[in-house]
């Protein structure tokens, strides 16, 4: 089973949010291969793990999600990054989409939406 499960890197500074996401993803057949708590870690872990999908929180200490997104997109243009946003961060989400994020999910997380976003991200092939 593990060879088919898409791998996910979860980036969020809050342990609580990571746990929630991890549970949702694990239950739906994704394999969470790593977690990062800020933008710097996210970049490091991304290079190390090359996950199929990365979920990226926006508001994080040290280096925020947008900056990490930019950096990762520079490293790997095909990176699939889904932003985790709070309500009201529309402008930032738009910025993230401009920078190459493939989708966004909104806290509090609804499992079906999260899964849908990941499924879609996997569908969209790199070239498009």
């Amino acid at each position: 089973m593990s060879h088919t499960a898409p791998s996910v890197l979860i980036v969020d500074d809050a342990l609580f949010m990571r746990t929630v996401l991890r549970d949702i993803l694990t239950k739906n057949g994704y394999q969470v291969i790593g977690e990062a708590t800020n933008g710097h870690e996210a970049i490091e872990r991304y290079q190390e793990l090359h996950p199929d999908i990365t979920t990226m929180d926006i508001t994080m200490p040290e280096l925020d999600g947008i900056a990490a997104l930019k950096k990762i997109m520079e490293i790997d243009q095909t990176a699939k990054i889904i932003m985790c946003s709070a309500m009201g961060q529309q402008g930032i989400v738009v910025e993230a989409i401009k920078q190459g994020a493939c989708d966004f999910i909104i806290k509090p997380f609804q499992p079906n939406r999260v899964v849908q976003a990941l499924e879609k991200a996997l569908q969209v092939s790199a070239g498009e």
Binding site: M87, Q90, I97, I106, E128
Partner: peptide, 17 residues
């Protein structure tokens, strides 16, 4: 749909591409 404005933006982005 949450943040429909962003969805609309994503739509126009896809169209631009």
């Amino acid at each position: 749909c949450l943040m429909p404005g962003v969805r609309a933006f994503m739509t126009t982005q896809v169209l631009e591409k």
